[in-house]
Nucleic acid binder design. Sequence first.
DNA 1: GTCTATACACCGATAGAC
DNA 2: GTCTATCGGTGTATAGAC
Lengths: 207, 207
Amino acid sequence: MLGETTRNRVSERREATRKEILEAAWALARERGLAQLTLRDIADRIGMRPPSLYSHVDSKNAIYDAMFAQAWTECLAQMRASEATCPPDSGGALRHYARAFFDFATSDLARHQLMNQRTIPGFEPTPAAYAPAVETLDLARTRLATHGVTTQPDLDLYVAIVGGLIDAQLANDPGGDRWSRLLDRAIDMFATDIGVGTSGREKRSDP
Amino acid sequence: MLGETTRNRVSERREATRKEILEAAWALARERGLAQLTLRDIADRIGMRPPSLYSHVDSKNAIYDAMFAQAWTECLAQMRASEATCPPDSGGALRHYARAFFDFATSDLARHQLMNQRTIPGFEPTPAAYAPAVETLDLARTRLATHGVTTQPDLDLYVAIVGGLIDAQLANDPGGDRWSRLLDRAIDMFATDIGVGTSGREKRSDP
DNA sequence: GTCTATACACCGATAGAC
DNA sequence: GTCTATCGGTGTATAGAC
C-alpha cells in the first residue's frame, strides 16, 4: 500500500541522514579531537544548518552516545571474528586476544578516548549504548576462562596490563610500536604467573 | 629604601592572591571535576569578579599549567621522600616505588587526570611546567636502574603496568582497593621476568 | 515533517573607567 | 587592581516558513 512505501522511503531517508551525521562526527573527531566536536561543524560538513540536526538527534550527547554504542559494537564484532584465528594453546590464546584488543584500541585514538576514557565532560553512556561494552567483557571473560584465567583478580590484572600498554602507546608514541612490542612479553609474564604454559615462544625475547 | 619595601609588600600580596586562586581551582576541580572548572566559579569562591583574575593569571590554561607544575613538583618531593623507607632488596624496592606512585596517583582523581591524562581539550603543559615531570621520571630511571631495571623496554613495561593498575583503579573502583591489591603481585611478576629475586614475599599471595 | 531564522544562557577573554 | 560592559563562540531551544 502507498502509505507503507511512503513511510519506508521517509524512514530510509531519515536513517541515511542519521548515518551521515555520525560519519561526519567521526571524521571531525579524528581530525580535530573528540572533545572539539561542535554541532556547527557537523552541520557544516553535511550542508545543514545547526538546528536542523535536532530533527535527527536529541542532543550533542546523544551523538556521543550513538558513537559509543557504534564503537563497542564494532569492537565486539572484531573480537568475535578473532576467534577464528585463535591458536589452540592457552599461552597463544592469551596473547592472541590481547593483541586483537590492543590493535583495535590503538588504531583510532578518538574512538579509544570515547570507549575507554572519560574525556568528555558531561557525557555518560546510556544503558543501551553500554550494552555492547558489557557484552564484549562477558565474551572476554568466557573465552579467557577456558585458558586459565578463572578468578576475578586474574581477569582484573589481565585487563589492567593490556589497558596500561594501550594507554602508554597512545599517549607517548602514537602511531609507533614502542609499547606494542612489549605486549607479548607482558602477557607471557602474566601467563607464567597464573600457571599457564607459554610453549611456542621463547622467554625474554624482545624483537 | 622605601621603594624596595613597597615593592616587596605588593609582591607578597600578589603572590598571596595567586595562591588563593590556585587553591580555589583545586577545590573546585575536586568538587565538580577538572574539566568543569570555570573562571566565574573560581572568582566567586574568592570574592572577585571574573575579569579581575586576568590581573594575576594570563588565561584559564595558565591556571591549568600552574596546577600541572604544582602537582608534579609535589609528586617529585614525595618520591624523593620515599627513598628513606625503601627496603634494601631489589624486589622490595620495585614494590616500594610502585606503591608510592600508585598511592599518590589514586589519592586525587582530578590531580591524576591533569598529570597523566590529556582530559582538558585545549591544554598542553608548557616546558617549564613539564620540567618537574621529566625530573620525576629521571629520578625513577636512576633508582630503578640500581635494582635491575636497566633497559628502556624494561622501564617502559614497569611504567605501563603501574599506570594500567592506577587507571583501572580510578576508573572502575574509585576509593576502593580492587586493583590496589594486585599491585604487589604484578610487580613480582615483572621482577621475576627481569631476573630480580622477590625474597621476603611468597609467590601468588593475594591478601 | 523538515528546514531556516532567531534567541537564550553560558563560556573565556578584552576594553576602558575609576 | 578591580570593576562594569561587552565581544565572539558554544550548546540548546523554539517559532514559523515551505
